[in-house]
């Protein structure tokens, strides 16, 4: 029950962020040179003059800035993100349709990064200054500096073109009509490369955070106590250190949620993954700015939700936190 109340409280705190995004979007529309209606319609005469008039009227562009803002807030609050002239359908629907693949990609990359990163960080910290530590540090240094889109392209060259182990792009094999487990397996094979390309940077990041955090925890008195009780080193790690050391990793995971969505834009583009990222890329190619604004709004909402979940995980991990 208290958890529910805490959740409600956090939800309330998220409202100003959503309001901020709406203000920022409104500001961006008016940042564009020229008529705001042309921003909303997509660039260079794609829309008919009649449609532009409808837009002007709908967004109150023929009225004062204050009224325009109120109209905009009203529309956003009803999740009316406007209409994509290029795609001939409402923006909100377009984005929701693409939500599934993006969620799958992000969740997979995120889980891989957190789990493997934690394990590697633990390995590096327990064998401090050993060759394992050195290798993990070196790999994470390189991973930090690698652009995800380039990594994806190189993976395609090696694993899809040269070795022909994995499909180059897409969500599933077109026209194969797999059923049941076969189709799951098929999507899985398509998912391996994009998820790895997206995960690598975060894997390195979490490994680094975990390593520092484990080292910090092992210096604490409670670890000495546990060892003095005669517990095995393994038991000290899994029973005592691990849970405490995970907290900074969880915090970092929440902080990085926004970047993960940004990263999935380029990775999806590379692999033709039919999610929000590819939609953003297509919107970019046709300069469909309103669709882009909608994607920005939805992904920011997604970050808010992820942060809520992270908060809840944090509370369950650390009972010391007052809720």
């Amino acid at each position: 029950m208290r958890l529910v109340r805490y959740f409600g409280y956090r939800l309330l705190l998220a409202l100003p962020v959503l309001a901020g995004i709406i203000v920022l979007n409104f500001f961006l529309i008016h940042l564009a040179p020229g008529d705001a209606a042309s921003v909303l319609a997509g660039e260079s005469g794609a829309a008919t003059p009649a449609y532009m008039d409808i837009l002007r009227h709908k967004f109150g562009l023929d009225q004062s800035l204050g009224t325009q803002f109120l109209v905009y807030v009203f529309n956003m609050a009803r999740f009316d993100l406007g209409y994509s002239f290029r795609n001939d359908s409402p923006v909100a629907g377009l984005i929701l349709d693409r939500m599934g693949p993006t969620a799958l990609l992000m969740l997979t990359a995120f889980s891989v990064a957190v789990v493997l990163g934690t394990v590697l960080g633990l390995v590096a910290a327990t064998g401090r200054n050993s060759w394992r530590d050195a290798v993990i540090s070196l790999v994470s240094l390189i991973a930090y500096a690698t652009p995800a889109f380039w990594l994806g392209l190189m993976m395609i060259v090696v694993f899809a073109i040269r070795l022909a182990w994995l499909p180059t792009s897409g969500f599933d094999t077109v026209g194969a009509d797999y059923e049941g487990w076969d189709s799951v397996l098929d999507v899985g094979r398509h998912l391996i490369m994009p998820a790895s390309a997206l995960a690598l940077f975060y894997l390195a990041l979490y490994a680094r955070v975990m390593r520092a955090s484990v080292l910090e925890q092992t210096a604490q008195d409670y670890v000495t106590t546990a060892r003095a009780k005669g517990q095995t080193e393994r038991r000290v790690m899994t029973g005592h250190v691990l849970r405490n050391a995970l907290l900074p990793v969880v915090t970092m995971a929440g902080v990085q949620a926004g970047n993960l969505i940004g990263g999935s834009v380029v990775v999806e583009t590379v692999f033709g993954w039919p999610g929000i990222g590819t939609l953003a890329f297509d919107a970019l190619q046709s300069r469909d700015l309103n669709l882009l604004l909608g994607i920005f709004f939805v992904s920011a909402c997604l970050v808010v939700v992820i942060n809520l979940v992270v908060d809840l995980i944090y509370v369950t991990l650390d009972p010391r936190i007052e809720i």
Binding site: L24, A32, P33, V265, L292, F296, V303
Partner: peptide, 20 residues
């Protein structure tokens, strides 16, 4: 904090796309 929370890369895309 607000600017740290929102998806930075997508915002950067938007700014460049809008300003050409």
């Amino acid at each position: 904090e607000f600017f740290q929370t929102i998806p930075a890369f997508i915002l950067a895309i938007l700014i460049v796309a809008i300003l050409s």
